[in-house]
Simulated assay, not measured.
Amino acid sequence: MLFERTAISKKPAELARKEIDSIKAEDKVSPDLVFRDHYVLDFLNLKDTFSETDLETAIIRGLENFILELGIGFTFVARQKRMTIDHIDHYLDLLFYHRKLKRLIAIELKIGKFKAGYKGQMELYLRWLEKHEMERDEELPIGLILCAEGNQEQVELLQLNKANIKVAEYISQQLPKELLERKLHQFAENAKRIMENRMKDK
């Protein structure tokens, strides 16, 4: 389940094995094993139409369940973290800390599809956190952009991993049949691509 639900499943089999072996040997966890492609937030009980503020408020109200869905090691730090840049206030939706990764985790919530412009916003937040909030013994902060739907090609073209940014989709309620069918088709295509890559690696 750890393998299947995290980003490590997209890597070639040999690299995935090395990461898992490193956990066993050094008790060291990589970001690819912490972050997932999808999060199920049905416990938030959101209505059919909601805003980013509604989503954030529901997460704070159900913080314990949200942290459980994120996974082990996450600690809540702040909501609407204020960052003053060039005399203008910016607000990060949620700020967490991950004990094993020893990093701050910046989370931005989006109610629509992923947009390329989100990268610049998150990079700005991460550099600010690096400059003003990071402790000496910590690793560089990581950003997680949670969207209702992803745009996989944009995510790949932007090479977000190099910028320490992860993108994941969330499911807040029962999906409409059409969207469910589309997502199942995407999952099947991704699984097929992973299997083809593994065969090439052998």
Rank of each mutant, 00 (worst) to 15 (best):
M1N: 00
I8Q: 00
S9M: 12
A13K: 07
E14F: 04
E14T: 07
L15V: 05
A16I: 03
K18L: 13
D21A: 04
S22M: 00
S22T: 01
S22V: 06
I23C: 00
E26M: 00
D27T: 03
K28H: 03
V29D: 06
V29Y: 00
P31C: 01
F35L: 11
R36W: 02
D37C: 00
D37G: 06
D37I: 12
H38C: 04
Y39A: 07
L41M: 06
F50P: 02
S51R: 02
S51K: 10
L55P: 11
T57Q: 13
T57G: 06
I60V: 12
R61V: 05
R61Y: 07
I67E: 13
L70M: 15
G71A: 02
F74G: 10
F74I: 08
R79Y: 02
R82Y: 09
I85A: 07
H98Q: 10
R99F: 03
I105W: 13
I107G: 07
I107D: 11
K115A: 15
G117S: 10
E123K: 14
E123W: 03
Y125P: 01
W128C: 09
E130P: 04
K131Q: 14
H132W: 14
E133P: 08
E133V: 06
M134E: 13
L140S: 15
I142P: 07
G143V: 12
I145L: 12
L146G: 08
C147K: 09
N151T: 14
E153A: 05
E153R: 05
Q154C: 09
V155F: 03
V155P: 08
N161H: 07
N164V: 05
V167D: 05
E169Y: 07
Y170Q: 01
Q173V: 00
L175G: 05
F187S: 11
R193S: 14
K200G: 03
